[in-house]
Design a binder for these strands. Sequence first.
DNA 1: TGATTTAGGGAATGACCGTTCTCTATATTG
DNA 2: CAATATAGAGAACGGTCATTCCCTAAATCA
Lengths: 201, 201
Amino acid sequence: MIASAARSRGRPREFDMNQALDNALRVFSERGYHATSIGNLTEAMQLASGSVYKAFKDKRGVFLASFDRYRAVRSSKLRVAVAAGKTGYECLHEALSFFANASQGLEGKQGCLVVSCASELATFDPEVAQKVATAMDVNEALILDLIRQGQADGSVSPDIDAAATARLLLCAVQGMRVVGKTGRTREEMMAAVGVAMKTLT
Amino acid sequence: MIASAARSRGRPREFDMNQALDNALRVFSERGYHATSIGNLTEAMQLASGSVYKAFKDKRGVFLASFDRYRAVRSSKLRVAVAAGKTGYECLHEALSFFANASQGLEGKQGCLVVSCASELATFDPEVAQKVATAMDVNEALILDLIRQGQADGSVSPDIDAAATARLLLCAVQGMRVVGKTGRTREEMMAAVGVAMKTLT
DNA sequence: TGATTTAGGGAATGACCGTTCTCTATATTG
DNA sequence: CAATATAGAGAACGGTCATTCCCTAAATCA
């Protein structure tokens, strides 16, 4: 038997898990965790409430799965975007532009699942708090990495405090997601990226 | 009759409005809007539910009043902090430090009412969305003002794009409030402020 | 084929929450 | 002092929400 074709025991799942999670995380992003009802989720995911509970235990389970999906998709897209740069400096510009683009127009208004929902839960849910902290750390580590890469290839000043700069840039991109909820244009956000790049010289 | 001593008609209010709002906004900040129940509010405000509804019409009314109170208090404190600086550059450093300080330790974990709660409501409540947008605009305008002041007194480079820099710094300070929810030290945040100041030279 | 296992769907349930109602208390007005 | 007006407190109410239950459907196992 081919390993990848191994089937589970009973009736197979009829819906596409990733597609359902993409719909769920869109609703969570727009409405926030507590304002999202099971009804909102069943409508968006095109599933009956019983099926939701069969597949995910409870509402929090849907959220946790959506959160992981969101992070996986965003991380993947970010890494693709970053790869377009050649020097460390260019990669950093790609990374900041990626966040700027997500903070503008409709996508900006939808907001960031990590920022809006997770902040809502992190206070009273240690597991979510940990996931949020990790998400932040991963982004900060990526930026720090690119700064060091830039210092190595000469595109970023060797005199800057890499750790502090990475932290400031992390704040800047997370702040873009917040400010972007009030509605900004791509030009406004890209101009901010241009200013942020000055911290690397 | 002395104007300031003019009393209203019926039984006078027994609780202190500002104190009650300070308690309410603390709960809204910690729990978010939807996760805050009337029970949470009556407990924190030390008022019976009937009294809350008599004084504020409904839950949203409590939130709106808390939001205004929060903005008034924070704005006032920010302006006091900024006044400690002499040059525009110094005033900007005071302003950024003010946000950094609020984004660290316990206050950082409590979070910002504008960021966490208002984002939660802004999607489906135009009035709240307007209030949030205004809060952002006021902060951005203050930063822009200080940059121009610095350019006038020679403490900030005349070559920088004042509007774009103000926007980036707004993103940075709002981002601090988000990142600060995951727990950061004063030193970490102040180092980020130091880096942000480089955008002014 | 019959037994077993898992998924889908939707009605039923029980708890909680926001709001209203009612009654009492305390002020001003005339 | 009566009349009026507003505040305080908490019980009562109605609706919504998350969750569970039960029945049916579709797969594998023996």
